[in-house]
Amino acid sequence: MRRLLSLSRSVVGKKVIMAVSGLILFLFVVGHLLGNLKVFEGAEKFNAYAEGLRTVGAPFFGRGQLLWIARIALLVSLVAHVWAALGVTLASRQARPVGYRYLETSETTYAARTMRWGGVLIFLYVVYHLLDFTFGRLNPSFEPGNVYHNVLASFARWPVSAVYIAAMLVLGLHVYHGAWSALQTLGWHRPPTDRWRRGFAAAVAGVIAGGYITIPVAVLAGVLR
């Protein structure tokens, strides 16, 4: 615990916390995608999957218990991720009180430069996303338990789909820099494979963003109905 505390006090340590919490959130994003893609198997199977999230772990866990454990873990990760990001950002802001007239960049990527604002956008989108699909407040015809219906109802309106697609592109960028950055921050490097790390991160980010985007596209195109 003492060591964890000393880790949290240092900026390098905060980066580690950001990387670990980011990886947990990343695993959620992957799992969520795999689940969501079941939408292509039809209403019955998709709704059964949604129900299964609540009953998984039975009989050892009661209904929804495991889901809540996962939600709490995600919430803790999110808080840690944001807290670390704030700490790191603050340290960096303070590190250069007088700015350059102009500083050219060459190595950095658009993804790297937009991590902070991208994170904020993703957070705002997640709030909207929860209000839409989990709490149903912003869904045009929310039916508890009929997840398939809720998804189609929402994505049928093109502005919602557009915002979703945009959010997934932002997520893709965030995951691209995040994944490569986490490998770097956690020190997972071996000299001969170093040059593959960026490619790996790009592939993962592309699959995630692309995978999610197929759903609203399929709804708008009438593939899912």
């Binding site: 240092s10 900026v11 390098v12 905060k14 980066k15 790191v88 950002t89 340290a91 960096s92 802001r93 303070q94 590190a95 250069r96 960049t105 060459s106 190595e107 950095t108 790297a112 430069r113 991590m115 820099h177 490569w180 950055s181 770097q184 921050t185």
Partner: peptide, 21 residues
């Protein structure tokens, strides 16, 4: 070294890679 580096007021590494360039 990391402790002193941070106490001196350097910023955090965000893996931009500009240093290497």
């Amino acid at each position: 070294m990391v402790e002193v580096m941070e106490a001196e007021g350097f910023g955090a590494c965000s893996n931009h890679g500009e240093c290497m360039a």
